[in-house]
Design a protein around this nucleic acid. Structure first.
Lengths: 124, 124, 124, 124
DNA sequence: GTGGTCTAGACCACC
DNA sequence: GTGGTCTAGACCACA
């Protein structure tokens, strides 16, 4: 369900964070249900447990998940505001750069339409 | 005319590249006119000449500027296709992430409007 | 009468210890009266019996309660010296950290007043 | 100037964070001056560079310091609000626990006086 | 030179 | 079993 591109410039833990957020939004990881343990997730993806832990901790700091010591990590009753703010900031910066490089608004609008209608590609 | 934020997470050479592209699009750097030399640009901005050289090299590889050995660096007859492709790719990735984190299309449309109507902020 | 916050970073057995001490100080658990058995306490709070046992053991080592084998666990004739020493040490450390981070004495005094006058919130 | 107690229960990176904050407040680390590099600090303290990096990153997230890529880590124009909030919360929790265990307000007031007048002990 | 990321493997506290 | 901390050592991008 989660795929990691080791060759991508995007850090592995960032890829993980994004995909987990996606899966939560899709309802595949349900509220108050546990995420795969650090070790099992690491094993499944073929990456180091520390990297998984780093991604989990990042999501925890953003309020997306919460930790119960000795039990595991659970999906929070989704307060996505922090995540949204960050994503919107990223979009805005990308848009400003696009505008500054002379791209037309219509071109962007097309892409917006494509992305929101289109298939479920991933970034990375 | 060019401002560098040394504290930003965006690499300095990237900030430089983006702002030069912007100035070209605004017609402030004119086609076949020379850019400031590496040394003068570095001195003016208070950054390392190597960093300026790296930015210029990057722009040259993207066909935005061309070097005449012993003469200087000149603005190319605006072939922005590579720049555009890159910017569009960045926008698309940002949009995909935004969608995956549960942001509504309407929210994005608002931002698009703001950016194309609004003042000329910079990213970084 | 006792509430456990499983999501808190404070270990469950610590939360238990603190709240039992509090109830003893309030006179709700009376001297030489029996505490609820490990199993019933665990059941009531929905936590692991091992955790309750750990809390009881901790309190016993601090002289707050004593075990009569085969009979049960009883509140000791309130010797709170060890508990007090520990609590004071914790307070002192917190105060030192606060001072080192530049907090004014007056700010702390206000908080002290609030806590000793105010309602009976819990930490965790 | 900084001392680490490897045997303490307090994580090394936390000890480091606290002591750096202290040194900043004392004016020993000056605003916009660089902190010792990750490697040199690690070497000096005899701990792992990763641990130092973790402490630095924590302080950065709290706005105490900022990173300039390739240059180093610098003291921010001290916005200590986050640090203060955290410290106050810790103090308050410790005070609540102390009150609940039956400690008198006067005892605490004495300690407050001692800490703010007294020598520069450290916690850990 | 700087910090950032990743891996490997260890030990600990909690439940 | 769980996550949290720490070490050792590697590689990369940036200035």
């Amino acid at each position: 369900m989660i795929t990691i591109d080791t060759r991508s410039r995007v850090p592995i833990y960032t890829q993980l964070e994004k995909q987990i957020v996606k899966l939560i939004n899709l309802g595949i990881y349900e509220i108050d249900s546990p995420l795969p343990s650090v070790r099992s997730m690491a094993c499944e993806l073929g990456i180091n447990p520390n990297t998984v832990a780093k991604a989990y901790k990042g999501l925890e700091q953003q309020g997306v998940i919460y930790t119960v010591t000795g039990k595991g990590i659970f999906v929070n009753s989704t307060d996505m505001t922090k995540i949204h703010k960050l994503a919107i900031k990223t979009v805005k910066n990308a848009l400003i750069d696009a505008r500054n490089s002379g791209i037309e608004k219509s071109t962007i609008s097309e892409i917006v339409n494509k992305v929101w209608e289109g298939a479920d590609n991933d970034s990375n």
